[in-house]
Design a protein around this nucleic acid. Structure first.
Lengths: 235, 235
DNA sequence: AAATCTCAAAATCTCGAAAATTTGTTGACA
DNA sequence: TGTCAACAAATTTTCGAGATTTTGAGATTT
């Protein structure tokens, strides 16, 4: 009758997670992107078991997955750490991401059909809504914003036929997301992100490949410029 | 006195491995690149425990790492499989690799100093030696050849200052290596790989960026063309 | 004082067995 | 014959304890 009463509390506590490893992975990943688990932090199993409520092997597997995404580093026999961040790394990351994302966008615009346009317009609309709300100052919407921002950027390159290019893009985009969130705590009011997105969208729909790619590259660069001015101010 | 007699046979059996996870990872990885573990093969833990002599959690972590490198796929609650291969995937992979590797080579040539040239020449020399032996028909040198070929290609782009670009390249190169080895079983006698490498080396040393990049791109394409002719022969 | 050594304490790493899930089989029923 | 429920077998997933390694403080030597 009550199979779940004794010691059966082993169900993933994250929506869409089909195993404890995946739930732990998703939660830890979120906390790293978030900054809750600070860059460089030593990830001790004792602490993690308490915080996430799963066994050591399970955690180990989740962390291994995060190592593969360069969100966590590991040294044999010396455990795991949250990956460090640096302005140099972000600058390098931004250059690499521009190379990949711009090429993917180029191919996507060349191959995209009406269905692609539809999805793209939809993603832009959803992003716009949360951007508007965010502008009125509602910090609890940051997760929403990041999700829809990701959806929009993925929708832009969705029609690119190269699975490997999109895979590379995914890795770099996730890293960028981390830097963006760490910097988003204090937003730059002088920047109109919505207008940047809208400009890229219009160029993409107009099939103006060169303009779309140029705007996208500038858009990617903006966050780096913002962070550079804040943390290396040789005023 | 005999600490190792009872049940203490827990030392990594792979050179350079500092843990059983790493040893298992390296061995399984080798067997996949090799073809010993065929594409699509279901990786059952029973079989893996017998074959590699380590526990389930250890294997699980090694496999998770391989999933991160796209050499293994996994479906929740349904286990792991060796990643499939296809001509389409290889074609896509080759295009992506050309984009990344050529850009990395361009930057490497622009930034490389004398030390870089020295390492590069050394790597080419070591590769040449094993190529010569391989030509006389010595299949047991395949591992050696692959290692030195990898070293040479890494040496070419070693002076590229972008860590992320080199990281992307590493992922794509490893995938290519798998296809190369699967195709290497029957080599194409009409192809002079040594000459291709030498031409790239000369252009790189001469700091002729455009020529080096063109030659490298052609070199990368050759294996795809070879495989295409063999497996899609509309003769 | 600096370097080396010793040896507990702390942390990581590994295993085997139990729990949970999927897969395969059998037989009832239409 | 075909469908489906119930049960059994096979497989994956998870945990906790023990084995192994690293860390750090204090003692000893140079």
């Amino acid at each position: 009758m009550d199979k779940n009463s004794a010691a059966a509390g082993r169900q993933p506590k994250v929506v869409g997670a089909r195993s404890l490893v995946e739930a732990a992975y998703a939660t830890i990943r979120h906390d790293i992107l978030d900054g809750s688990l600070a860059p460089g932090l030593k990830l001790r199993f004792e602490m993690l078991r308490e915080r996430y409520g799963v066994g050591a092997s399970t955690l180990r597997e989740a962390l291994t997955r995060l190592v593969g995404e360069s969100l966590v580093t590991s040294e044999e026999q010396r455990g795991f750490r949250v990956a460090e961040v640096s302005l140099d790394d972000f600058a390098d990351l931004t250059r690499a991401r521009k190379l990949i994302e711009v090429e993917a966008l180029r191919q996507s615009i060349l191959h995209g059909d009406d269905a692609w346009e539809g999805t793209l317009v939809g993603a832009f609309h959803r992003l716009s809504k949360v951007e508007a709300k965010l502008a009125t100052g509602a910090p609890e919407l940051r997760d929403d914003f990041e999700e829809r921002n990701r959806d929009f950027h993925y929708a832009l390159i969705a029609a690119c036929p190269s699975r490997w290019l999109k895979h590379m893009h995914g890795i770099l985009f996730q890293q960028s997301e981390r830097y963006r969130r760490l910097s988003l705590a204090a937003r730059d009011e002088s920047r109109d992100v919505h207008a940047e997105h809208e400009a890229v969208l219009e160029a993409a729909l107009a099939r103006d490949v060169d303009r779309a790619c140029r705007l996208e590259a500038e858009h990617i660069d903006k966050t780096l410029q913002l962070l550079s001015r804040r943390f290396a101010p040789k005023t």
